[in-house]
Design a protein around this nucleic acid. Structure first.
Lengths: 214, 214
DNA sequence: GTCTATACGATGATAGAC
DNA sequence: GTCTATCATCGTATAGAC
């Protein structure tokens, strides 16, 4: 039935949107199913009916946005690798880092509600809750592996473990930026330094590029 | 009385040590007072008696280590500023960053249990729980302000908001490093790249120095 | 002053009856 | 799909033993 199906889709999506927002504001552990369903205007049991558990809801919240985002980043990285192969020269490290970072930061403006997601993701890497880290790692891991491989091709003379750590410095800088850029309480410093996403990309790319080559 | 006082110190310290460990493993929100007191072998009510609340316990856990650590970092930064003033030339950016980062990473080996603390702190900046971020910010803020001021003196030609963001990239790299360096589950990547603290300092300093100057 | 035993009120996720 | 019951666990408060 059209009506039933539409209503069901509406309920699922309302739950996903509300959960995403609350996860970003209060964290996974700090968000109760009562808070989600209450704010979404659906029944408490709807989460277990549609998703099975709170953990499964978390997975859906992450995958819904991360799927498309990863697709873009993967495409850009693969393009660089393909071009590098046909042209017979190694990839440019700045281009590689841009292929990963630019879509990530600009993603905030791509869809409605994506800002909450970026904030949440910026915290997920170091989330104290094991569930969050596990689910997040499973989704991000193939992406990071590809990034590592491509960076290694761009810097063939650098030992792998040095690349490993420098890449972690880069990821740390990026995720911290994602977190504070979208943080609800932005000013831990007294000054408020607003910046648009495009300028932020133009700031972070030279920083991490210089670091990776240091 | 000596006996009573010694016993009291024992209980308080056992609570602090256990809380520190569990906060690092399970997070603030994920650690119940029952878990802490149970593992410490003290009564449940002991936390409220000695500290007043779970939040106050968190404050003590943070301040106990952060006090000495901040003292070292402050001393080294102030020395650089003083020398810069007497010698009439601006501070070296690499020296400034080293003064802040080196004590932080080496702190792990300075005292027993400090490793748990470093792991916990590495997560605190982006902790989903507002209580953790608030308490942590209050303790770290003066330190970051001093760092910002000293970096600004080292790079007088750079606009303040550029320094602001680059410093955040640096802090992000450092905290992410602290977090994964001491993480209980280190391998989100398949390879395990062990490194000693000294070598880690020698890796991150050139990275962030290059980034700040980019 | 310290520490213990126990109780309270609130809130958590989930499952089964409808 | 919804409503309600269930049962575990939370932080905190308090009364009394040492």
């Amino acid at each position: 039935m059209i009506t039933a199906s539409a209503l069901q889709a509406g309920t699922k999506q309302r739950i996903l949107d509300t959960a995403e927002h609350l996860f970003a504001c209060e964290g996974y552990r700090g968000t109760s199913l009562r808070a989600i369903t209450g704010k979404a205007g659906v029944n408490l049991a709807a989460v277990n009916y549609h998703f099975g558990s709170k953990r499964a809801l978390l997975e859906e919240v992450i995958k819904r946005r991360m799927g498309p985002l990863n697709q873009v980043r993967r495409k850009r990285l693969e393009e660089i690798r393909a071009r590098s192969l046909t042209e017979g020269k190694r990839p440019d490290i700045r281009a590689v880092l841009t292929a990963f970072i630019e879509p990530t930061i600009l993603f905030r403006e791509s869809e409605r509600g994506a800002g909450d997601f970026i904030t949440f993701i910026g915290r997920s890497f170091a989330d104290p809750d094991d569930t969050v880290r596990t689910v997040f790692h499973r989704v991000i891991n193939p992406m990071v592996q590809l990034l590592f491989r491509t960076v290694s091709e761009a810097l063939p003379n650098q030992p792998k473990d040095i690349i490993f750590w420098r890449l972690h410095f880069t990821i740390g800088a990026l995720f911290h930026t994602m977190h504070i850029y979208g943080a609800m309480k932005p000013a831990f410093m007294s000054m408020t330094t607003y910046i648009d996403a495009r300028s932020l990309v133009n700031l972070i790319i030279p920083y991490v590029t210089a670091g990776m080559k240091a």
